[in-house]
Nucleic acid binder design. Structure first.
Lengths: 192, 192
DNA sequence: TATTTGACTAATAAACGAAAATAGTCAAAA
DNA sequence: TTTTGACTATTTTCGTTTATTAGTCAAATA
């Protein structure tokens, strides 16, 4: 990625993060980056696509952070799940542009991001399924029925927490107890 | 409650349920109920208060249904929790006016219902806490740390499911597997 | 006295055009 | 190939009018 494009992307990320998608103008981003607006459009075809790249880069970072967790094949699958969930919430807590997609207006206005979010969901479902399957194979976990459905439910649970944690500012208060709840879940799926 | 008031309330519930709060006019409700608009305002002071009563009555019904579950003191606390969760989702699935408060616009426009929802949240937190505490006392459950926090997290989980289940129409698909997930949770909190 | 009525008023939302702001383009320059 | 900024096209904003709907009240009814 060229330095100009990089500069534009990080400036866009900061500005969107500060004022939100709709309160940020393309002129403002270009000016902040000390580039012409034409350059912005040369590298990113539209405001929506620019925001997509901003959010995508946050999600790519998250994926990367999460991948490093389950790359460790020796670890107990219960520890991997625990680490996955905690890391997920930690990184999301600083993914400020992703957080904007949680806002209620999202559903009305941000359809252009639906596929990005959906893709992330599918990615996570796949990873969690993989972790669970590994745990079952290693005899650490016991899951009657379809494993993929458990993955889906766990994801719904994690996503359900996003609004209270990130939008309603309860991250600091609840995260300390989050660990206990994960403890319940991992105990619940453990083979006795 | 007088027959007229009753009639107006059920008509309002049906009409709001069909067209939503904003697409329903007070004239329409009065006409449907074959009453004068003045009667509507005699029994309910405003459109917002009328809708409040409609939602409140749905939530009162839900409370009633849930109360009958944990009134049974002999039952195993794990069974009570399971029954609570399933019944909760079943009743909510038919609480069509409550479901409207889940819509994204809710946050912007329906502040006048925030306290009703909050009150329900508090009620549920209290009931779930009670069930969990009973289970701990009877030696059926094991919960390290603050019991109330588990109740809060369980509630967040249940509320997190509401949007995918009721607004995104996944109730039929997911409810059958919901039971498995509850199984994990109850196993997780069970004393071994 | 408590309740019901419907014509009436007050408040809100929709429709619309003009002005302002912002997204997006492109020929010229680097 | 990339960058620039003046330019156009589109969208949003704002003020005004019109239409709809919320809410009132004096009279009628039970």
């Amino acid at each position: 990625m060229s330095p100009t494009k990089q500069k534009l992307l990080t400036t866009a990320s900061k500005t969107f993060g500060k004022y939100g998608f709709y309160k940020t103008s393309m002129d403002e981003i270009a000016k902040s980056a000390r580039k012409a607006k034409g350059s912005l459009y040369y590298h990113f075809n539209s405001k929506e696509l620019l925001f997509r790249e901003v959010v995508t880069s946050e999600l790519d970072f998250l994926k990367q952070e999460l991948t490093s967790i389950f790359d460790d094949h020796n670890a107990d699958s219960r520890d991997i799940i625990r680490a996955y969930m905690i890391k997920r919430m930690m990184v999301m807590n600083i993914s400020i542009n992703y957080q904007e997609t949680l806002r209620p207006e999202f559903y009305e206005f941000y359809e252009f991001l639906n596929d990005v979010i959906l893709e992330m969901d599918e990615w996570e479902k796949k990873q969690i399924t993989k972790i669970l399957n590994q745990g079952v194979e290693k005899g650490e976990l016991e899951l009657p029925g379809e494993v993929a459905i458990y993955a889906e439910m766990l994801l719904i649970f994690l996503k359900g927490l996003e609004t209270p944690l990130f939008l309603k500012g309860q991250y600091e208060r609840l995260i300390s107890n989050f660990d206990n709840l994960i403890g319940i879940l991992t105990k619940g799926i453990s083979k006795i």
